[in-house]
């Protein structure tokens, strides 16, 4: 055998080496997890949940939940305790990973593959049930920290606020009505003010979708009215998803209501339709 033949033998074209085989899995994942930084809402909805199931130690928190949120809409989600409202938010924000199902932000971003901070930067802001703010920071600093900007470690070490960013903080401060308390430490604020501050922090992130968990819990009536005003004014520019127990409040803001029960959608429609829905009445009032 001459040299050429020997080389040919080694490099036979019908032989496949393991490392040359593209793993099926990685190939699939590659096409799934392409998340471009631009949000594609060309088909209408900004948020897709399809057949999402989550169970904790045998408890089915979400059961084939499918839900679509349109760009710019204000949606209220109601449901009895344990219906899966908070779990749904956990799934969207990446805190909990679904057992099965698809969760997409726009057409391209697969939220089940993204880390919490990536989801937040991509444009999904979340307000927790219990007002969660930075107690030792001033109102101003709370807003400053939430601001949409480079959130890398080295950048934050040397950054200083520019005029535009200061203007943005002042603007949001006006929207949430806390300009008088600008330099007050956040844990000195009243409960309602803390809720607003947290909403303000979401606004600073400039998100496309705001997930708001029980915004009026523990608020006085005046505060509730102001919150309703605030949330309705935000819809249009942002999609707002509100989880709430207080029916009067829901009636005052929502045109579209989704009722969750035992981890899936029970009914969907306007508040009136939903209230007269037989299944909803059964769930809420019992047989």
């Amino acid at each position: 055998m001459n040299t050429l033949a020997r080389v040919r033998d080694v490099l036979r074209r019908d032989r496949t080496f393991n490392h040359t085989i593209v793993e099926e899995n990685s190939f699939l994942q590659g096409s799934h997890s392409v998340h471009h930084n631009t949000l594609d809402t060309s088909h209408g909805p900004v948020l897709y949940l399809e057949n999402v199931s989550v169970s904790f130690d045998g408890f089915q928190a979400l059961n084939k939940l499918s839900l679509y949120i349109d760009d710019g809409e204000l949606r209220c989600i109601i449901g009895p305790n344990g219906a899966g409202k908070t779990t749904m938010m956990d799934v969207i924000t990446g805190k909990t990973r679904p057992d099965t199902g698809l969760v997409y932000f726009g057409q391209t971003m697969d939220l089940t593959q993204m880390a919490e901070h990536d989801i937040a930067t991509a444009g999904i802001g979340r307000k927790f049930q219990k007002p969660t703010i930075f107690p030792e920071h001033s109102v101003w600093e709370n807003l400053e920290l939430a601001m949409k900007t480079d959130k890398g470690v080295w950048h934050t070490l040397f950054t200083v606020l520019n005029a535009e960013q200061k203007a943005r903080i002042e603007e949001v401060m006006l929207i949430i009505g806390l300009q008088k308390h600008c330099y007050a430490r956040a844990n000195l604020l009243s409960h309602g003010q803390k809720q607003w501050l947290e909403i303000g922090m979401l606004l600073m992130q400039d998100p496309r979708v705001l997930l708001v968990d029980e915004p009026v819990a523990g608020m006085t009536h005046q505060e509730m009215d102001r919150t309703a005003e605030l949330l309705t004014s935000l819809a249009g520019k942002h999609s707002v998803v509100v989880v709430e127990h207080d029916m009067d409040f829901v009636r005052s803001i929502a045109n579209q209501v989704t009722v969750l029960h035992e981890g899936s959608v029970l009914a969907e429609g306007t508040m009136d339709e939903v209230q007269h829905n037989q299944k909803v009445i059964e769930v809420y009032l019992g047989e």
Partner: peptide
């Protein structure tokens, strides 16, 4: 610095810090 404020924020409310987009 802002980094210092974020570090205190992590001490006080780690989850919040994560959900406003910082890689804690």
């Amino acid at each position: 610095s802002k980094l210092g404020k974020i570090v205190v924020a992590i001490r006080d409310a780690e989850l919040r810090t994560r959900f406003i987009g910082y890689k804690v």
